[in-house]
Design a protein around this nucleic acid. Structure first.
Ligand SMILES: [Mn+2]
Ligand SMILES: [Mn+2]
Ligand SMILES: [Zn+2]
Ligand SMILES: [Zn+2]
Lengths: 139, 139
DNA sequence: AATTTGTTTATAGTAACTATAAATTCAAAA
DNA sequence: TTTTGAATTTATAGTTACTATAAACAAATT
């Protein structure tokens, strides 16, 4: 995604543009699509942004989330952030820890739920198992 | 589910039967189907089991989980335990906090993922939104 | 340039677990 | 039925991931 997409989305939600926010945006953009913890981002950018704190990274991610450019899900005791805002499954490999995006038919799931009278704001499908690569290595 | 189903499942996995484990089993059985945190269970059973600690409740839930009678998922910063081990979605209402079980076609999702070469051990669909009841009250 | 309001920083605090080791108890075997 | 050994519970300390607070600072509107 274009850098301005993140900036404009922040502006549309009345968030200010700060150097710290731009640094986080540049980080997630250059690692996109990917899955990050706040701590991971914090550790990676503190050379470039030496006064930043972990609390600020959490705040920035919350701002990005509320402006719609970042999504989250929880698993293995922590919160993961990602720039892939399309509906998809997140497959966590029990062996190597990598997280993979899996295309899933949104309509099939949501029609089911909304048909039962619920109004869905957010949906997360989290899968655990062994990934392709690890299955091959296991011989 | 029958009380012996939990007991036999523990035995099959070489877990011992203790009064504390039976108390937790009785609790989840009598609130089934439901969604519990470890703390919730701990607070509810400590009148009956006055020396029990929260660590023990966590241990017991881990034993039940590994013997296959209890499943878990994470959302809103904590781990939820449930006795419904069939594949289903968990809908969390943003308004009242209640969690509802939603029937979902497992085959449709898993065929998609396993078709891509992954071996799935576990799948969790977590939905957030406004529940039926809260939608009606909102007028 | 001045003002306002949002943001960052530093730091303290909390919630949800997890680890450790001693005391206890379960259950299989003698 | 007692003994035995491993599993479990308990008490407690520790950790991780996150949240709150308030003062210092900076962005953006005028
Ligand atoms: Mn993803
Ligand atoms: Mn459920
Ligand atoms: Zn793997
Ligand atoms: Zn509700």
């Amino acid at each position: 995604m274009d850098r301005n997409y993140y900036i404009d989305s922040l502006k549309k939600s009345n968030f200010k543009i700060t150097p710290q926010r731009l640094t986080v945006i540049d980080y997630v953009r250059s690692h996109s699509p990917g899955h990050f913890t706040a701590e991971e981002i914090f550790n990676s950018i503190k050379s470039e942004e030496p006064t930043i704190t972990l609390a600020t990274v959490y705040n920035i991610l919350k701002a990005l989330q509320s402006s719609g450019t970042v999504k989250t899900f929880e698993t293995s005791g922590s919160t993961w952030f990602e720039t892939n805002t399309d509906f998809h499954g997140n497959f966590v490999c029990s062996n190597c820890g990598k997280i993979y995006d899996i295309g899933i038919d949104e309509e099939g799931i949501l029609s089911n739920v909304e048909g039962s009278g619920y109004s869905v704001q957010e949906a997360n499908l989290i899968l655990k198992g062994i990934c392709k690569e690890c299955l091959l290595d296991r011989d």
